[in-house]
């Protein structure tokens, strides 16, 4: 290996450590060629380049690249708008009140990184990508969310009675929990919808983890929560550390099933773990979801885009938070 290649490799690894090391986690296919990688927050769309049919000598042109890139970015914008911020709203609903902010999000998407084949090749694909981190997250995470307030949200009714738990006895809160480095919440089989700022509730209806514990800066740079499709601690070590606590979620909550309910003792344990600055600053919580069905697609057209939709959406369920 030449010194030049070695230096280039090291520089790339060190300059983009998050990209180099980040685990992909739960990869959700959306629409044609689109995926949301909920481990590192990447949203991407791959679009084939169209070369005129029947012409053996046809080559890629700037126009064919432009068509493919524009179409891919349009889809990526739709995917971003369709993502749920929390139980109450989507990105689209949040931006519907603020034209300037919506234009900025469009600008970020239109400026997204793009991979494409060299011009005058026979064909290929265009891939555009953006991340629910950094600048995009700064724009789409509402400033009205009370990050790091320390005040847990509360459900209007306790879940103690409605959700029985027949699993193993939970570990005593206040015991030796200082060695846990993070939390893995197994929510497989609960049809959970991924969101940017979900809340983990105890059965007592009190929030155990969510944006109320995390600073806005950490939420922007790391994501409040990561989603994966394996509960193997070794595979999730990068996010949850060497010794995570694994918890089985009792149920999903909310009209879009974005929030989770865990037992009250486990909720207490999660709160205790999150008192560690290392754990809370690195948002060391992963929710494990089922592997997506091969044909699963989120119909983008079904997403509510205005306040009226939001209200009707919220009206489907009893008041969730006090």
């Amino acid at each position: 290996m030449s010194l030049r290649i070695f230096l280039l490799t090291i520089s790339v690894l060190l300059t983009f450590p998050a990209m180099a090391l980040s685990f992909q986690g739960y990869v959700q296919p959306v629409g044609e060629g689109g995926t949301i990688t909920w481990g590192n927050g990447e949203v991407s769309v791959v679009r084939s380049l169209e070369v005129p049919e029947g012409d053996e000598n046809a080559k890629l042109t700037p126009l064919s690249v432009r068509r493919a890139a524009s179409s891919a970015r349009k889809q990526m914008l739709d995917m971003i708008l369709a993502v749920r911020i929390d139980a109450k709203r989507t990105v689209s609903a949040f931006l519907s009140d603020d034209d300037d902010l919506a234009a900025r999000v469009r600008g970020v998407v239109q400026n997204s990184p793009m991979e494409r084949p060299a011009l005058f090749e026979d064909g290929g694909e265009v891939r555009v990508s953006e991340q629910f981190r950094g600048k995009l997250a700064e724009l789409i995470l509402p400033t009205t969310i009370q990050f790091q307030s320390g005040i847990p949200p509360k459900l209007s009714t306790s879940m103690e009675q409605s959700l029985s738990y027949n699993g193993e006895d939970p570990e005593q809160v206040g015991g030796d929990n200082s060695s846990y480095t993070g939390v893995i919440i197994d929510a497989r089989g609960l049809q959970v919808t991924p969101a940017l700022t979900p809340v983990i509730y105890g059965q007592d209806g009190v929030g155990a983890y969510g944006a109320f514990l995390v600073s806005r800066a950490n939420a922007i740079n790391k994501g409040v929560i990561a989603y994966a499709n394996t509960a193997d601690p070794a595979a999730l070590r990068e996010r949850v550390g060497n010794k995570p606590l694994t918890i089985k979620a009792l149920n999903a909550f909310g009209s879009w099933r974005t929030d989770l309910i865990i037992t009250s003792p486990m909720a207490g344990l999660v709160r205790a773990i999150m008192r560690s600055p290392e754990a809370v600053q690195n948002c060391r919580v992963v929710i494990v979801l089922d592997r997506p069905e091969p044909v699963e697609e989120i119909p983008l057209d079904d997403v509510p885009v205005n306040d009226a939709d939001e209200q009707s959406e919220q009206g489907q369920t009893p008041a969730e938070e006090q």
Binding site: S70, A103, R104, Q110, N111
Partner: peptide, 14 residues
């Protein structure tokens, strides 16, 4: 090389 004026305006902020 942009395909939209929104992108150029975003680069202005950058």
């Amino acid at each position: 090389g942009w395909f939209s004026p929104d992108a150029a305006l975003e680069f202005d902020r950058v």
